[in-house]
Simulated scan of single mutants.
Amino acid sequence: MKLDFDFRAKIFILFLDMLLVAFITTDIIVYSMLFMLTIYLILQGYSRKAFKLLVIACIAIMLKILSMGQGITILIPDMFLFMIIRIMIMLMAAQPIIGMPPGEAVAVFKKMNIPNSFALPVTFMLRFIPTVRSEFSNVFSAMRLRGLLSFRHPLKTLEYVLVPIMIRSSKVSDELAASAESRGITYPYNHTCRRDISFNKKDGLLCAIGAAITVLLFIFEKVVIA
């Protein structure tokens, strides 16, 4: 059964994840975080995305172990593998937020009386990222049909990707802004939402479990280092 957590609970989990990624250095804790975040995503119906991110992280971990912390030549240094693993952890924590309907974020921000100067950029970002990702997919499909994807000429291939993406991104941003404005996103009074926006028991439980796990991991980190 898919669980739907409140936007505020997801933000709290992302904040805890950012703290851990910033200060945790022990490998076993990093691996534990990957396992727990995989469960976190599966519970919310992101099984496929969790599997993809976990596979990428596991490949980086295997390369890190095989190279014994020295990296794979100068092409794949250990710092690169270190960053890939932590980026995957961040993406796993952020996926429920990226994948949520922007309307839900707007409703939560309005309910919390968050200023538009903060709420509007976050809302546009939530809608912009999936749209640009879809544009990337369309560009790659078009390039593949025209036979323009080639590793022999990487600079040309990069040009064929970046130019249409930059043009489409500019157009998409204008379309999203016009769409949001037509739906009254800047309307100063009360907004209605067809979703039930409430911070209930399961959201509180998620935050409590997340906070407890974070504290335990920090304690474990200090014990291991000591």
Rank of each mutant, 00 (worst) to 15 (best):
K2W: 09
D4K: 15
D6C: 04
R8D: 06
A9G: 15
K10T: 05
K10W: 03
I13V: 14
L14K: 12
M18Q: 12
M18N: 11
L19F: 13
L20T: 03
V21S: 00
A22H: 01
I24Y: 04
I24T: 06
T25D: 10
T25M: 09
T26F: 09
T26A: 15
I29R: 05
V30C: 12
Y31T: 13
S32N: 01
S32A: 12
S32M: 06
L34R: 00
F35Y: 14
L37V: 08
L37E: 13
I39G: 13
L41C: 10
I42C: 14
L43F: 15
Y46I: 00
S47I: 13
A50E: 01
F51Y: 10
F51D: 01
L54R: 00
I59S: 06
I59Q: 05
A60K: 09
L63G: 07
K64I: 07
I65Y: 07
G69Q: 04
Q70I: 08
G71A: 02
G71F: 02
G71S: 04
I72H: 02
T73S: 14
P77I: 09
D78L: 03
D78Y: 08
F80H: 03
F82I: 01
F82L: 03
I84H: 06
M90L: 12
L91S: 06
L91E: 08
M92N: 01
M92V: 00
A94C: 03
A94E: 00
M100C: 11
M100Q: 11
G103T: 06
G103D: 11
E104Y: 10
A105K: 03
V106W: 14
A107F: 05
A107T: 04
A107L: 05
V108C: 00
K110N: 10
K111Y: 05
K111V: 01
K111H: 03
N113Y: 12
N116R: 04
N116F: 05
S117M: 04
F118D: 08
L120K: 09
P121H: 01
M125R: 03
M125E: 09
L126Y: 03
R127G: 15
I129N: 08
T131G: 01
R133V: 15
E135N: 11
F136Q: 05
V139T: 06
F140R: 13
R144P: 02
L145C: 10
R146Y: 06
R146M: 09
G147T: 04
G147C: 00
G147I: 01
G147W: 01
F151A: 11
R152I: 10
K156M: 12
K156A: 11
T157Y: 10
L158V: 03
E159R: 07
Y160M: 04
V161G: 00
V163F: 13
V163K: 15
I165V: 14
I167D: 00
S169V: 03
S170A: 14
K171E: 06
V172D: 00
D174G: 04
D174T: 08
L176E: 04
A177E: 01
S179W: 10
S182T: 10
G184L: 10
G184N: 12
G184T: 12
I185Q: 01
Y187G: 04
R195V: 13
D196G: 10
I197M: 06
S198P: 02
N200K: 15
K201H: 12
K202Q: 12
D203Q: 09
L205Q: 08
L206W: 05
L206N: 05
A211P: 02
A211D: 03
A211F: 11
L216I: 08
F218Y: 08
F220Y: 14
F220C: 14
K222R: 14
K222N: 10
V224E: 11
A226M: 14
A226N: 15
